[in-house]
Every structure is written in C-alpha cells, then in structure tokens.
Design a protein around this nucleic acid. Structure first.
Length: 476
RNA sequence: CGGCGUGUGGCUCAGCUUGGUAGAGCGCUACGUUCGGGACGUAGAGGCCGCAGGUUCGAAUCCUGUCACGCCGACCA
C-alpha cells in the first residue's frame, strides 16, 4: 500500500542528494534548527553519536599519551594577531565580543575559532626546559566561525570538536606526532565509522593558516564529493617564534619549540550520514550506533509479549539495546528504527514466542533471519560484526569505483564533466595552476597522498614537469 | 557576500493572481477496536497568516523594508 503512506517521505538520494541529507538529519532526529542562524540544536540521537565518538576517540588519544585540558573561549584581539598568516586566515570569520555587561571592553575579544593562540600563550609561560617537553594536550570544546552559508554538521557557526596542541623539542618529534595523530584519525574512521579515507598532505593553497604542513584524511561521500574528515598540522617553529615559546635544551642552548595541532569535529557525523545512509534514512555502523538493537514487540498488549521483549533485552545486555514499547503500530516502529539507522531490529510476537524464536532484520541489507531464543546473543554478536565489516567494504568499493585516473587535460576535464568522484592526476606543484583548475573546473586538490604513484611525467593541466600525484575532487 | 526560492495550528501545504475577517491532511488529547512494513472509528483541543511600516472602510492576499530558513556559487573543518 505504498500510496497509502501518509507521512512525508525522505527525498530519494538520486532525486536530490542535498535534500536527502537534510531530510535524513531531520527524520533521524539528529538536530533541530535554532533561533541563531547556523547554530543547531543537537538532539539526543545526534548527541549520543557524538558522545560515542568522543569516548572512542578519546580512548585512542589517551593511549597515545594525550592529556585533556580546557582553555578559555575568548581570545583578546592582540593575541589573535600575533601570527600573521593565522590571523589573516581566520579574521574574516570570527565573532567579536565588544561589551562586558553594559560597558565597552578596553580590548575586544573574539570567540575562539580555534585555540592555537591560546595554547601558545599558555605554553610560553609553562615551558622553560627540555624537561617540560613534550606537551601533548587536547581539549574537547566548541568553536565559532561566522560562516556565510551553513548546513547541519557540515558547516555550522558553532561546532563541537577536539583540538590537540602539542609542543616538542625537535622538528622530528613534531613531525612524528603530526603523522601519528593523522593515523589515529584514519584508523578510527575505518575501524569505528567504517569510512575509508585517503591520507595525504594538503597543497600550499589548501593548508591551514599558519601551518608548515597540513595532513588530511579525505573521505568520499555517496554523491562522489569529498569531505575533509580530520586534519593534523605541523607548525614547525613558526608559532613558537611569533609567540616566543623557547626552552633551554640539554646543550644549554635556548631553542624554539616545534608544534602541532590536530582536530576532528562534529562534521564527521555528516560523513557517517553521507557515506552509509540510504533512501530509508540513516545507517549507523554498529561500533558507533548509540542503540545497536531495537526490539519491536508485535501485538504487545497480548499476554506475555512485552515480558518476553524485556527478557530478550536483558539477554542482550552486552549490547546497546532498547525495547520500543510505545503504542505505535509495528509498521511505524519499523520505519522509525530504519530512519534512525539502528543496525539490528528484533521482532517478537505471539507466533515467535510459541515457536521459541524471533526475527532479526539487518538495517543495511534488510536481510531477515529467524533466530531461536537460545541463539540470539551469539547471532546478534555475529551480525553486528558482519555488518560493521561489510559496511566498510561497501564504502571502500564505492571509493574505488569512483576514483579515476587522468593522464591528459582533456581526460581530466571530461571525467569531471561527466562524473563525480576523485581523480588521480599529476601536478606541477604551482599554485597558479591549481587556482586555474579551481577557477575553470570547480575542482580542488584534496590531497597529495602519502602513497604516491607516478602516472606520467607532466602536469595533467599545464603540461609542465610533474612533481606530485594529487587527488582532485569537488568538496563539501 | 552574490543568485534563486520559501515563511499560514506541532509538521506538510492550500488560500494570494482578482483584498471581505482562515482551510485540508498528518500529528496531538480522550475512549474503543487494532497490531508480522508508517492501522481505524468517534469526540475534542490547537493559528494575532515571520516581523515592522504603508495603501484601504477593510490586508494572509497589494506596496516598502526587515528577519529567518533552504538550495546554488564564492570562502572555510
């Protein structure tokens, strides 16, 4: 009875991907819009995902020697201006506080768009000797960037993130930390979020304001567009020189520290949606899903049904499990569970109780299984693991199938004219050439992958000698 | 910040062209029947039509301004 559907459906991906995204975000009840443009209310279903990201990522940080701290949210203007490239990069998008109560402030302060300057100011006073190093600090907080156009999770004016800021005695150690954190992000994406990523270095044009080098993980969304999903920067001693962060080394010489910073934001929730979602809504990888199993009783008012549902819920105590005992119809609950992306559904009704079994349905493939009660725990465990694995495999396949190689300018332009995805191509290393590509083709360099391949000797666009193989694409 | 579009009960929208005192479906509340893919009946509650000016005897409707949201572009995590 498809025509009997009375509830507003989710727009199909193929019809309008942007609208599909917005529909899913709303239907899965991840967020609501607020009264402040670009600032969203993150609802329980959305925040629970973020909490799991925090928990799992923070665990990996701690294992890598990271300590958490908290910095102020205000940055005096004079402090923000200490590093030239940095202030130029961020000045256009900071929000300013000009009054304290009724009185104008002697110096206006911005709401942190990122906290490099605060950490630097702090490190300046806190680091004196090589014995004080390294500093490997991180904070979970929100930052504000006054974006012109906003979209839930992908670009909001206030967003949640973590920002790690480290200080080291040597350039080598800073470089090592920059790579280490990028690898943590990449592993986290693949193992927990089932999102395969391309690891690489940003070009001069695309790197972070004030950084010596920016490393990135780039993920491909279902529509073939790229989403920068995590970054790690090596600052060299640039900030240290701007802020005067010096220490006395073992050789009794005064030296500047070498710094890094790295971050992942709630934007990554947008990636989860756009990599795994389908026309029925969200599909959450089991590892990150706040609820992994939803038990839906059928004819729940019949004697014993709810009791059995709770009993199964208890049996599945090792998983994140819930019983939907609301008085909606089962069909409603099925749709609801699908829109919210809950990995497994257990159906339990009078017929099942009589037969000593229940039905399990997988969210991603919609496969249904009849499972005896005594097999339930084992089957759920297997299915969750299988689903996690297959979601990554599917995403990998999608990434591979939408990654192309271009050897000539004609080929390069034709691919982007006809398809969306990543294109691997050689590049001369000139920013002017990169800008021309962006100007003419609306395509940006995503990264210079660590895994370099030599596809040819000349730049795909200008024909000059090639220096690097680059992933190109359209980005969010 | 530029282009396009949209603001009407909680949601989706109709009404606006041609001004006459606000509608539908869903949702919500109560009761009953239902329950294996968004169930049904009966009864009910709920709206100064985004906001501010203006035109008019009279404005959801016409005019001006403004704000918000969405999409596309430029910029960015």
């Amino acid at each position: 009875m498809a025509e009997k559907k009375l509830v507003e459906a989710i727009t199909s991906m193929s019809e309008d991907f942007a609208q599909w995204y917005t529909d899913v975000v709303k239907k899965a009840e991840l967020i609501d819009y607020s009264n402040v443009k670009g600032c969203m209310v993150i609802k329980p279903a959305g925040y629970a995902i973020w909490e799991n990201i925090q928990k799992l990522l923070d665990g990996r940080f701690k294992a890598a020697g990271v300590e958490n701290v908290y910095m102020p949210m205000f940055i005096p203007e004079s402090l923000l201006q200490k590093e030239k490239d940095h202030v130029e990069g961020f000045a256009p998008e900071v929000a300013w506080v000009t009054h304290g109560g009724l009185n104008p402030l002697p110096e206006r302060m911005c709401v942190r768009p990122t906290s490099e300057t605060l950490f630097c100011d702090f490190y300046k006073g806190d680091i004196h000797s090589y014995r004080d190093l390294p500093k490997v600090y991180n904070q979970w907080c929100s930052v504000v960037r006054w974006e012109k156009e906003t979209r839930p999770f992908l670009r909001s004016r206030e967003f949640l993130w973590q920002e790690g800021h480290t200080a080291h005695a040597t350039a080598e150690e800073a470089e090592e930390r920059t790579e280490q954190m990028l690898n943590i992000y990449a592993d986290f994406c693949e193992e927990v979020l089932a999102i395969p990523v391309i690891k690489g270095r940003k070009t001069e044009k695309e790197k972070f304001a004030g950084a010596h080098a920016t490393y990135t993980i780039e993920a491909m969304m279902h529509d073939g567009k790229a989403l920068q999903s995590g970054t790690s920067h090596n600052f060299g001693d640039g900030f240290a020189k701007a802020f005067g962060i010096q220490f006395t080394d073992k050789d009794n010489q005064l030296k500047y520290v070498h710094q890094t910073s790295w971050g992942v934001s709630t934007r990554i929730i947008g990636a989860i949606i756009m990599v795994h979602g389908d026309d029925s809504g969200l599909v959450l990888p089991p590892e990150i899903a706040p609820t992994q199993v939803m038990i839906i009783p059928i004819q729940q008012k019949k004697e014993g049904v709810l009791k059995k549902a709770y009993e199964l819920s208890e049996k599945l105590g090792n998983f994140r499990v819930k019983v939907d005992d609301s008085d909606k119809s089962p069909g409603w609950k099925f749709s609801e569970q699908e829109m919210r992306g809950i990995p497994l559904r257990v159906e339990i009704g009078p017929k099942d109780i009589e037969a000593g079994k229940c039905i399990i349905c997988r969210r991603d493939t919609r496969e249904k299984f009849e499972v005896a009660f005594n097999e339930l725990e084992k089957t759920v465990e297997e299915l969750l693991a299988k689903m996690q694995k297959e979601m990554l495999e599917r995403a990998k396949k999608h990434l591979e199938e939408h990654t192309y190689t271009a050897l000539s300018r004609e080929e390069f332009e034709n691919i982007f004219a006809e398809k969306t995805g990543f294109v691997k191509a050689m590049w001369c290393g000139e920013s002017a050439c990169e800008e021309a590509i962006k100007e003419n083709m609306a395509v940006t360099s995503r990264c210079m992958p660590f895994k370099q391949e030599c596809l040819s000797d000349t730049c795909v666009y200008c024909g000059r000698p090639a220096k690097k193989m680059v992933y190109w694409g359209k980005a969010y």
